[in-house]
Amino acid sequence: MDNDLFPLLQLCDSNFPSGAFSHSFGLETYIQEQVIVDKESFKTAISAFVDKQLVFSDGLACSLSYEILENNRGMDELLEIDRLLFVSTLAKETREGNRRIGERMAKLCLELYSSAPLEEFLYFIKNKQGYGHSALVFAIVGHHLQIDKEKILSAYLFASVSSLIQNAVRGVPLGQTDGQKLLVEMQVKINEAKNKIKKLTKDDLGAISPGLEIAQMRHERLPVRLFMS
């Protein structure tokens, strides 16, 4: 078994305590409005999430961050990607959710892997000069462990989808078997997303769906909520 597989499995594990299990990133709005009611309707919603949010925002940021590290372009450019991610996210809960997950993941990964760039990134977060996002943490850790970009990007996309599916098992609710079936079915979509991201540039960052952004904003006013965003 490849040595780089072990950290990827750990980062993608649903038990990894990043706090992602507390967030739906707007999908709970669709659940309460009964747009999402079963496996198929959730598959439609999460496919749109992958095509927009993950391709043009989080996944692209992970890819761009890895390239910055690979080419030794410095922390300033990483912080610029971090800033663009934060300011292009219109919904407050989603901005804060991403920040909390990223900071928590950075702190935990720094204890697991001694990485100078990760320590520097966390320093800027703690001193309010950076916001923190799990996409950047994934890229920093992957580069530090010398895992190639495609594997890291695939792992990040998979972890994001897996987390949302596990949350849907609780929130829709879906059966555990349906959740696992959906995770298998989404593997094709994840691979398509990775191939799309490879063709994008920094200019494409933040081009996501207005409908999803509105659902994320409306989540703040739901009368009853299982998730923080």
Rank of each mutant, 00 (worst) to 15 (best):
I36P: 08
I36D: 04
I36V: 10
D38R: 13
K39T: 07
K39D: 01
E40V: 05
S41H: 11
S41W: 07
S41G: 09
A45I: 06
A45D: 10
I46M: 03
S47F: 05
S47W: 04
S47P: 06
V50G: 05
D51V: 05
D51A: 14
K52P: 03
K52V: 10
K52S: 14
L54Y: 11
F56N: 09
F56H: 05
F56T: 08
D58S: 15
D58K: 15
D58T: 15
L60D: 01
L60F: 04
L60N: 03
A61P: 05
A61S: 12
A61V: 07
A61E: 03
S63E: 01
S63Q: 11
S63W: 14
L64R: 10
L64I: 10
L64E: 04
L64D: 02
L64G: 07
S65Y: 05
Y66R: 07
E67D: 12
E67L: 14
E67W: 03
I68K: 05
I68F: 01
L69N: 06
E70N: 14
N72E: 09
N72G: 11
R73F: 03
R73C: 02
R73G: 01
R73W: 03
G74H: 02
G74E: 07
G74I: 06
M75F: 02
M75W: 00
M75Y: 04
D76V: 02
E77G: 00
L78G: 08
L78F: 07
L78E: 05
E80F: 12
E80K: 12
I81C: 02
I81F: 02
I81D: 05
I81P: 02
D82A: 03
R83A: 11
L85W: 01
L85N: 06
F86I: 06
F86N: 10
S88V: 11
T89C: 13
T89W: 12
L90S: 04
L90C: 00
A91W: 07
A91V: 09
K92V: 10
E93H: 04
E93K: 05
E93L: 11
T94R: 05
T94M: 11
E96V: 14
E96A: 12
E96L: 15
E96I: 14
E96M: 15
G97W: 08
G97P: 09
N98M: 12
R100M: 13
R100T: 10
I101M: 06
G102K: 03
G102Y: 00
E103I: 12
E103Y: 01
E103C: 13
R104P: 10
A106S: 06
A106T: 06
K107H: 12
K107Y: 08
K107Q: 13
L110V: 08
E111L: 15
E111T: 14
L112M: 12
Y113H: 13
